[in-house]
Design a protein around this nucleic acid. Structure first.
Length: 572
RNA sequence: UGGGGAAUAGUGUAACGGCAGCACGACUGACUCUGGAUCAGUUAGUCUAGGUUCAAAUCCUAGUUCCCCAGCCA
């Protein structure tokens, strides 16, 4: 946890700076002294799934705001539903938040930490005539709730006395009743236009063991009953959540008011949507279960685990979250902005290396047999401190198949019969002869000559060349597998499908391409997982955890911007 | 047809009665030993209709469109 989560480094504690609507609210609260200048937020994941880029937006918001205002941000697991939650998720969530660069200190909390307090508060509401035990089944409750346009009917159990309710609730707690047979409900208003206020359930009976409290609680609180009170216990000043909870705010406030306890302010913002991907837990789970991807951390997934494996940096994700801003308008961010953010960071820090993905053999007919030269190559033109390295050069090389065309169209600047190009950091070469497989007609080798006077890449006579190609020396290169990724879906909105089909109809069949005959420069031989670099002219890549010594595996994080590829794509 | 929200270039996001700005994208051009990076430039916007005002994205009125809510999920 070395970095400051506040990317701007600027304090937002004055209201001169353009601030988003949440920071404006906080600025106003600070101005009026509402919380004595205190700012305390929380990130409250439910431990029933893996974190994704949408959560990163919330994490950056909550931890970022706390840091900017000199406040604190808690990590709180919203573990009110034992049948869906598991320790594995808790561990992965903590790993991801830490990886993103945030620190919750010793403030790791669980809603289940507050089950006793919640129970006491429930007793108070019952005592005040504000809650009652209801014997209706789930289906009956639904029927009684009414509809969007029609008021609900009151439960026949609504009129129970305080004593009756207290006795029944005590027995619920003692585990005397079957799952789902009774609930504790807030007594509010069955005719309320907001359905959340029509006597919402506070406790249900769920005998399944809880990952933290074991079998101590046969009853468990609902989100509505637990969340606001948890915020209150932690003295959260600003409880930031997504738009769908806007309808719950009246209830959130109602509980706090009836209890007479510290009242945090709930503020809702629009969740993140990204083009060419899905973000809902349900759809992500479906992709994993139906084997459309290789797992939760498949590099094509928008999960933090997937992005990490893909080679994304925490810095890039934080920069992205800072740029997308925060508002109440529902929006879909162009995935190109995310890609821009990784490129921007990796361009600054990633060492450059040469790797040939689809090798084409090149023999330099006039280069001495058996000779090897060690040529100097710059590690990162954006960072002189990164220094240089030696790259071996010899008579037989590999270049990229895409860098040669027998009949080059207009605007193709690379190698072609009779044409001269530069090999990066090496020599000018000229293509003299094209060798083909007589059967298939496929080009199998290029026989070229090199100009010894151009060693290092410059011609003493000042002659220019239109392209510089990357290459590797055949006898020195290390074989590697490279996994190329593209968008998981073929449409910006995966849900844009013909009637009767679902989002899987838009899955991109070409989202993964595995190249297993790649040749990379020898300096890469000893690199392990999480090593990130730029393959010159191709893109940013990282070593995959599947990689083993002698069997390198790389993932392509993102391509470089490539005008030529765009020209070609436009033609098809 | 109840209630709660939201509408600003292609996509996001500012401007809080006083010149509609920024980022990404797209398109030019310069430079380049990465068709990368960098630099310069172009493109393009206030949902609609009225009203208030010297002045409206901003205030008022009426409409339109989109999102959320009928889990003992969160």
């Amino acid at each position: 946890m070395t970095s400051t989560p506040s990317e701007s480094g600027k304090s937002r504690s004055n209201d001169r700076e353009p601030a988003d609507f949440i920071r404006q609210i906080i600025n106003e609260d600070n101005r009026t002294g509402k919380h004595g200048g205190r700012v305390h937020t929380r990130f409250p994941p439910e431990p029933n799934g893996y974190l994704h880029i949408g959560h990163a937006k919330s994490i950056c918001l909550n931890f970022g705001i706390a840091a900017e205002y000199g406040g604190l941000c808690n990590l709180r697991f919203d573990d009110t539903n034992p049948i869906k939650e598991e320790q594995e998720y808790i561990d992965s969530i903590k790993t991801d938040v830490r990886w993103l660069g945030f620190d919750w200190g010793d403030r790791e909390f669980y809603a289940s930490d507050y089950f006793d307090q919640l129970y006491q508060w429930a007793l108070k509401l019952i005592g005040d005539g504000n809650a009652y035990v209801c014997d209706l089944t789930a289906a009956e409750i639904r029927e009684h709730r009414g509809t969007l346009t029609r008021p609900g009917k009151e439960s026949p159990y609504r009129g129970r006395t305080v004593e009756e309710n207290l006795a029944l609730f005590e027995r619920m707690r003692a585990g005397e009743f079957a799952d789902g047979s009774r609930t504790l409900r807030a007594k509010i208003d069955m005719a309320h236009p907001n359905l959340n206020m029509r006597d919402p359930v506070m406790y249900r009976i769920l005998q399944s063991p809880h990952h933290r409290t074991g079998n101590r609680w046969p009853i468990c609180p609902t989100y509505d009953w637990a969340h606001g009170q948890s915020d209150s216990i932690e003295r959260i000043t600003h409880s930031i959540c997504t738009l769908e909870f806007e309808n719950h705010r009246p209830l959130y406030d109602w509980f706090l008011r009836e209890l007479g306890v510290f009242a945090p302010q709930q503020i809702e913002f629009a969740r993140l949507n990204l083009t060419y991907t899905v973000m809902s837990k349900r759809k992500l789970l479906r992709l994993v279960q139906d084997r459309h991807v290789r797992g939760w951390n498949d590099p094509r997934m928008p999960t933090l685990g997937g992005l990490r494996r893909r080679g994304y940096t925490p810095e890039a994700i934080r920069a992205f979250c800072a740029r997308i801003g925060v508002a109440k308008t529902e929006s879909t961010i162009d995935v190109q902005l995310l890609e821009h953010c990784v490129r921007e960071h990796l361009n600054r820090v990633a060492p450059r290396v040469m790797a040939v993905l689809r090798p084409l053999k090149v023999t330099l007919t006039n280069y001495p047999e058996g000779q090897v030269e060690q040529l100097d190559a710059v590690n990162n033109p954006e960072d002189p401190a990164a220094g240089t390295r030696k790259v071996p050069f010899s008579k037989v090389l590999y270049i990229e198949r895409d860098d040669f065309m027998e009949a080059p169209p207009k605007k193709f600047f690379r190698l072609a019969p009779g044409r001269e190009v530069r090999l990066r950091y090496a020599y000018f070469i000229r293509c003299e002869e094209v060798v083909k497989d007589p059967a298939s007609g496929e080009v199998t080798e290029l026989r070229c000559t090199y100009d010894p006077a151009t060693r290092g890449g410059d011609a003493p006579d000042g002659r220019k060349v239109k392209a510089t190609l990357h290459w590797v020396s055949a006898q020195h290169a290390v074989p590697a597998e490279v996994r190329l990724y593209d968008h998981l879906f073929t449409r910006p909105d995966p849900d844009d499908v013909p009637e009767g089909l679902d989002f899987t109809a838009n899955l991109n069949p070409a989202s993964l391409e595995v190249l297993d005959c790649c040749q990379v420069e020898p300096s890469l031989a000893d690199k392990g997982p999480e090593y990130r670099c730029q393959f010159e002219r191709l893109g940013y890549f990282c070593v995959d955890p599947d990689s083993k010594p002698g069997r390198l595996v790389f993932n392509r994080t993102v391509t470089l911007k490539d005008p030529w590829a765009k020209i070609q794509k436009a033609k098809t």
